[in-house]
Design a protein around this nucleic acid. Sequence first.
DNA 1: CCATTATGGACTAAATCAGTCCGGTTTCCA
DNA 2: TGGAAACCGGACTGATTTAGTCCATAATGG
Lengths: 164, 164
Amino acid sequence: MLRLSKLADYAVLTLVGLGRHDEVVTSSALAAETGVPEPTVAKVLKTLSADGLLVSQRGARGGYRLACKLEDISVARVIAAVDGPISLTACVSGGGCDNGADCALYGSWDVVNEAIRDALAGISIAKMAEMSMPARRIRAELCASRDNTLHDSKSADQVGTFGG
Amino acid sequence: MLRLSKLADYAVLTLVGLGRHDEVVTSSALAAETGVPEPTVAKVLKTLSADGLLVSQRGARGGYRLACKLEDISVARVIAAVDGPISLTACVSGGGCDNGADCALYGSWDVVNEAIRDALAGISIAKMAEMSMPARRIRAELCASRDNTLHDSKSADQVGTFGG
DNA sequence: CCATTATGGACTAAATCAGTCCGGTTTCCA
DNA sequence: TGGAAACCGGACTGATTTAGTCCATAATGG
């Protein structure tokens, strides 16, 4: 639970992908790079663009590019863009509470929501990318050093190099 | 998104309800108190009990009571109990990533997950209850007399009345 | 013009969740 | 000792949400 939508996952992936280019990139190119199906990438790109995270260029030779640096984009921002406001439950002060008049927790989730928003606002996409690549490398080296303790071919596939 | 399940909401509600009793309370009594349908409350109670948050007493005159004080129960704990591990996406280091070998974010969500877990671990159910009741009171009084300064002391602890 | 590319919306299938129900077991009490 | 009260565990169903796709349209460059 507290499960993130896949779209948000794709969004981060896409943003990182875009971060590797200086010029505009088409959605199909991005799809090829990330391995995510084209229509899905297109959808994510549209959403991100609508939110202002990307700048789009229509027409031939068009595409997308980042509106700002990855360091300046927080996870909170991305999640909010693709999945709407970060709010843990329907029972918040602003809206109506399904539990009705008996609800003893009116507004109490606000504290929680704020805490989460703070946590997410403090992590940039750049940071995420930074935390992931070395992790993969380290893991790959661990596997190498332990030599043949690796039996799972799928795992072997997973640590395969990806372009960078 | 990042939407909490209703079960978790009910769980907190139920825990706070239980916190008002010293002796064991039956699920039907709790249902009556909270206004949540009986089967649903029963389900939540069962889950919470299985997780060790509650102590159950079977048989006639049985019921549930808190296993520990509300101050010692974090939201993280409750959410994990009813909704499983707090993990933002399937793309975590431990499990398999759906994005496959192309995933450039292997393990990067772990940072995010940890941040969220930290945030949630720092908020107790007692705190939530505390933050909610005064809010309701203040709101009620604001409606009554808007220009009143009301630095009302926190009498949240002894708020026994609970109807709206 | 025409090929290319984003845009916006609608749509279907799949997954998940909320809520309910039932048969079983344990315990109390008369 | 028997019956009622209450928890236990799991299965089931309908509703909601999400994932993923597709199409018609508008804009741009050559």
